[in-house]
């Protein structure tokens, strides 16, 4: 806002700038600390962990814990590593994100450009679904998944994530298309373009930013979900978050903190990567998730 930059800073101003930067850096260290701890712990041997402390860098860095986590760690009673669960999460997230994003785009299009009576009420009803505590749907969902033969399966989780992701994807696209000029669409319609043609040829090609935002938001939410995974697929089809929790809580004679941390890194890596590569869009999704378009 208005502290002067450039020119002569008075000594009081210099002092306050110094305090300001110090505070910002201290906070940055606090926020980075857990990530740092996670990485260095995963690179240490158990002896080194016991002999040293949290912040000590690994004296003899080793990827043993990473290898063990990936291929040999015990998830419950089975000791074949977390690789299967890591891929489970992808098998779940990719279709769930693709389907919910596509449906959200079409919904947003209808709700803004082909408005019918009661559209706002329908939108309000859909929107409320974003914010229910999912505890209210667990038992009915488990029952239905059982009846459909989808309990303990990845397709079952895809169904669940599409269902409860739809309201967010619809919200994102609706808010985005609301600002899209109607004139262009009117003109296309006069030229005889129908419902789908307008969508494919006019709206979709102009939707890249919101598609990126929605895909990132959905991917982060689906990948990071634990409640649905633990409730509906705790066995072989378990997602990575459930596997991580199992690895940490599997009672072995020795507590292998390095393996726990390596597993946590595997669980964090995909969303962290998305965040680093496309942080701008990630933030936009967060903002849109707070309803404001």
């Amino acid at each position: 806002m208005s502290i002067q930059v450039g020119g002569q800073l008075s000594s009081t101003q210099k002092f306050w700038r110094f305090v300001l930067y110090t505070l910002l850096i201290v906070f940055a260290f606090v926020y980075m600390a857990p990530l740092y701890v996670m990485v260095v712990t995963s690179l240490k041997s158990l002896d080194e962990i016991r002999g040293g402390n949290l912040m000590m860098p690994p004296l003899d860095p080793t990827f043993d814990a990473w290898v063990k986590s990936w291929s040999y760690a015990c998830v419950g009673v089975e000791c074949t590593g977390i690789n299967k669960y890591f891929f489970n999460s992808f098998k779940m997230a990719i279709p769930a994100v693709a389907i919910s994003t596509f449906m959200g785009a079409v919904n947003g299009y209808v709700l803004t450009k082909w408005r019918f009576k009661g559209a706002d009420i329908f939108f309000g009803l859909i929107l409320f679904g974003c914010f229910i505590p999912f505890q209210i749907v667990l038992v009915p969902m488990a029952t239905i998944l059982g009846k459909l033969g989808l309990a303990q399966t990845t397709p079952g989780l895809v169904l669940v994530h599409v269902t409860y992701g739809l309201c967010f994807t619809t919200l994102f696209f609706r808010n985005y298309y609301q600002a899209f000029p109607d004139e262009l669409i009117k003109a296309a319609k006069l030229d005889g373009a129908g419902f789908f043609r307008v969508f494919w040829r006019i709206l979709l090609p102009n939707s890249l930013p919101i598609i990126v935002v929605t895909v990132i938001w959905q991917f982060t939410n689906v990948w990071n979900d634990f409640l649905f995974g633990a409730s509906f697929a705790s066995g072989d089809a378990a997602p990575m978050t459930v596997a991580l929790n199992n690895v940490v809580n599997t009672s072995t004679s020795v507590k292998e903190y390095n393996v726990d941390m390596a597993t946590a890194i595997y669980a964090a890596l995909p969303t962290l990567l998305v965040y680093v590569l496309a942080g701008r869009y990630f933030v936009r999704g967060l903002m849109a998730g707070a309803v404001k378009g």
Partner: peptide, 8 residues
């Protein structure tokens, strides 16, 4: 960045 992580 913590916001990108799972609570787990």
């Amino acid at each position: 960045y913590p916001m990108a992580l799972s609570f787990i």
